[in-house]
Amino acid sequence: MNLSGVLFFPVTPFAADGTLAEQVLAEHIGQGMEHGPGGVFVACGTGEFSALSEAEHGCAVRVAAEVVGGRVPLFAGAGGSLGAALNHARAAREAGADGLLLMPPYLAQGPGHGFKAYVEAVAAELPVIVYQRGTVVLEPDAAVELAGIPGVIGLKDGLGDIDRMQRTVLAIRETHPDFLFFNGLPTAELTMPAYRGIGVELYSSAVFAFAPEIALAYLNGDERLLTEFYAPLVRLRGKVPGYPVSLVKAGVRLRGLDVGAVRPPLVDVTAEHLEELETLIKTGLELAKS
């Protein structure tokens, strides 16, 4: 599957009454598509996957499929219990998604062959990118086994253990040279120099959701953004748990689209931090234009 450039992870908008705001989601994805992302990942981490009901998840994927219209690969989040993950996968397949980002099966943790069976079941429905984070921490030999499952096409790393990831990349590429690897850390641009050093070029860009101009300027080589935008953003992100999502949603609102609040247990950005974010966005946009 051809994935390149900036990968767009849209937020999931909610109306004032807390329901899924379908039209706003369509507008949000449509705005992002105008900037030419290499792929769209709907109802994933930035899209508050864990806060969505199965019905809302299916609705979000249908909306995304209609807007994307096959122009770029479309992936949907899937995970949780096996039954839920299979329902996510089938709904995504029916909506026309091209693949899945498979989240960890939270809390329940079995031996390696148990997780392999979990992945096999979901990958039978649609191509899968396995997300390494939380309870899913893979040794290179275990990752090689997963890469051998029909339908498993990639691994997204949310751990940041460069030594482990380097060994994993080298081990998998011995037998699966076309396997996809992604930097899946929050605000991934800041760590891309390290990931590029071990041969990982793809990354999820949360910034693209609210400032595609900045994300594209960085992709095109503006290294000033690392120190003047991304590093301060990461410092702000670290001030409150859950801010990797809350800040993105706040950024979309600051750029003029009312995508509503985050759902508990996440909390919205404080007034002080919102002002700080607004200043950072202005700085990043000025750099992107210069």
Rank of each mutant, 00 (worst) to 15 (best):
T19I: 00
L20R: 11
L20E: 01
L20A: 01
A21R: 12
E22I: 09
E22R: 15
V24T: 15
V24P: 01
A26S: 10
A26D: 07
E27G: 02
I29Q: 03
I29K: 09
G30L: 06
M33F: 08
E34G: 11
H35P: 00
P37E: 05
G38W: 12
V40E: 01
V40D: 01
F41C: 04
V42G: 02
V42F: 03
C44G: 07
G45C: 05
G45F: 12
T46I: 14
G47T: 06
G47R: 13
G47A: 09
E48K: 14
F49P: 02
F49L: 07
F49K: 06
F49Q: 03
S50N: 10
A51W: 06
A51V: 01
L52H: 11
A55T: 15
E56F: 13
E56G: 04
E56I: 13
V61P: 05
V61F: 04
R62V: 02
V63T: 14
V63C: 09
A64S: 07
A65F: 06
E66T: 11
E66S: 14
V67Q: 03
V68S: 03
V72R: 11
P73N: 05
F75Q: 00
F75W: 08
F75H: 01
A76P: 04
A78Y: 06
G80E: 04
G80K: 09
S81I: 01
S81Y: 10
L82F: 07
L82R: 15
L82W: 08
L82M: 13
G83E: 15
N87E: 11
A89N: 05
A91G: 03
A92N: 06
A92V: 10
A92R: 13
A95W: 08
G96A: 10
A97F: 11
A97C: 11
D98H: 15
L100W: 08
L100M: 09
L101P: 02
L101G: 01
L101E: 00
L102K: 08
M103Q: 13
M103G: 00
Y106A: 10
Y106C: 03
L107R: 14
A108R: 12
A108T: 14
H113A: 03
F115I: 06
F115L: 15
A121F: 11
A121S: 14
A121V: 07
A123L: 06
V128A: 09
V128D: 02
I129S: 06
V130M: 04
V130S: 04
Q132C: 13
Q132I: 00
R133S: 09
R133P: 00
R133V: 13
R133K: 15
T135F: 05
T135R: 09
V137H: 14
E139I: 05
D141H: 15
A142T: 11
